[in-house]
Nucleic acid binder design. Structure first.
Lengths: 335, 335
DNA sequence: TTGTACGCGTTATCAG
DNA sequence: CTGATAACGCGTACAA
């Protein structure tokens, strides 16, 4: 192994003719060092190509300057083409980069993976942890928070833990969409709900229920898991159980996309016979046949907001327990 | 800050009634420790909830047990819905998890981001670096390799550096697809090429050129950047310049998707008037109108293979300079 | 087989 | 404003 010995503080100090302590001060931007000395130190640093050893620094400062983003790999969504997780990753990455922190990505699929995440994060190998959209009532966020480790979730923790979270306004967005359908004269509005062990699935269904109930309309529900396959099945089920439906709100664009095709195969015309609204506004939504009316969620911004909250917590500030990002109805041709 | 003091080796040693060194041996799986003592140490570890301090360990072992995956954030592709980068991330994550290593994700979009990546990786804060599909001739991989830092790229480095890489067989896949078009009787086969500063863009064009040339057919080329927008523009351009074309090979499924729509708008029927073949086999490909015939690339496997190579290099082994993963033609209805 | 003692590269405290 | 010097927590020759 070509272990080209890296220069240390010591080496820089010798070259600059000062003490290690002084070099450290300059490197860390202390203002209490005379200008000419700073100059000399900086020259030495440049000449030697000195780069601080993070491990040594961490050992004494107790900070790692890195944050973990935990993704539930099991969720097929992670790598389906809805861009939810890539979007979150990007937002988190942007905000961490701005703060000069590292992003440690942990895919927690298997039980073994989950145990690994627990061991690693609770071992304080990172300064804070971001949880993206967990399934079920994962106790880990609450556990870490109780250990005093900064934690932020995307979506309200389902186990009721008092962990700060950021989420998009599912309920508000869905309510707007369903009201839009009602205002367009639709009266038999069905929904293809998402998985009920995920906040996004739960809240989008709540939004639907509240709105149709308020309008005195019937609830027509089928369940899916956000994927296209499940959307196809759910659409067929709805058609079989409620042949008279005149609109469908799908809890994800992928399910809406599948619904479009299933409706066509069933001989229904969109939007004349049946109006379809999705949720997410993935890129494909503008290219479906017909282009999909959907609810846009600010997914990159979600990642950024989570990260900002986490950084504030890590800095010792207190943050609001919940933060809700606005969603927006994007009207195209399917409704 | 709730800095619940973590137990150290020292504490475990006291509780178990042995020396620090012995505890260290047990923790690191040395076999030279008497069984009863191992037992006692393990009990103490469990009781105290001891977790090794990675920074301290890194300081002495010179290993960080973490690897960086560098993504060019600027590429709009990263967060378009083609799943290329998510797929790579997943593959890398799986393989690193199996090796009990951490994944540090670095989005290198801006020049500042690039500098940051260089500083971080050349500072040996990771045990190795994976580069995903760079634009242009980035000198960083070569530079790191020369510093003795394990590096693996996805795709042949464009600056000619002798860095090991893994890639999918672009040329072979495209050749098969184009021959398939020829065998179907198509004679005026156009291509919508990808960006020529990326290996994937270059090689896919090469595959097209070699195959049409070998068949004595004309080259009909328009350029895009893998996105749908660029696909729309390229398709219109091709139609204007070569109204007689009877087939199109698009260097990405997104461009192919856009081509489908552009062709429909131009009154051409797919596949009767014009056959369309894409590249990637994204999930959407099975849901386009008509479903897209395309070349499937094993993208998750690409991530895994890159990681395996990197781990081998980091372990001191030597690996083959290039590794090519097979691609496969998936025939649906568009050609 | 076990323990002692040193060193890894920094930051922080405290004199000067 | 600068320089010794003591931690930080661990792995590992070396000695016992």
């Amino acid at each position: 192994m070509t272990t080209a010995q890296r220069p240390t503080l010591e080496a820089v100090a010798r070259l600059a003719g000062v003490s290690r302590a002084t070099v450290s001060r300059v490197v860390n931007g202390s203002t209490t060092v005379a200008e000419p000395i700073q100059e000399a130190v900086r020259r030495a640093v440049a000449e030697l190509g000195y780069v601080p050893n993070l491990a040594a620094r961490t050992l004494v400062t107790q900070r790692t300057d890195s944050f973990a983003l935990v993704l539930p790999e099991a969720a097929t969504r992670v790598f389906s083409d809805d861009q939810v997780f890539p979007g979150i990753i990007r937002g988190v990455g942007q905000e961490l980069e701005a703060a000069d922190k590292q992003l440690v990505l942990m895919l927690a699929g298997s039980p073994a993976g989950h145990a690994r995440v627990e061991r690693y994060t609770s071992g304080r190998h990172v300064d804070g942890v971001l949880f993206a959209s967990l399934h079920g009532a994962d106790p880990l966020p609450g556990k870490l928070a109780r250990l005093g480790i900064p934690v932020v979730c995307s979506g309200r923790p389902l186990d009721g833990a008092e962990v700060p979270y950021v989420d998009v306004d599912h309920v508000g967005g869905v309510a707007r969409a369903v009201r839009y359908l009602i205002d367009s004269g639709r009266r038999r509005i069905a929904t293809m709900a998402g998985p009920q062990d995920m906040v996004a699935g739960i809240e989008r269904l709540v939004g639907y229920r509240e709105t149709v109930a308020a309008a005195g309309l019937p609830e027509l529900v089928a369940y899916g898991d956000f994927t296209r396959e499940s959307g196809t099945a759910a659409m067929r089920q709805l058609l079989a159980e409620h042949p008279g439906l005149d609109a469908v709100f799908a809890a994800s664009d992928l399910m809406a996309h599948a619904a479009l095709r299933a409706l066509r195969e069933a001989g229904r015309h969109v939007p004349d016979d049946v109006a379809v609204v999705g949720f997410d506004d993935i890129e494909t939504a503008a290219y479906t046949e017909p282009p999909l009316t959907t609810i846009r969620q600010p997914i990159v911004e979600l990642g950024r907001a989570m990260t900002r909250q986490l950084l504030r917590i890590a800095a010792g500030e207190t943050v609001e327990q919940a933060l809700l990002l606005p969603t927006e109805l994007v009207v195209r041709d399917s409704a």
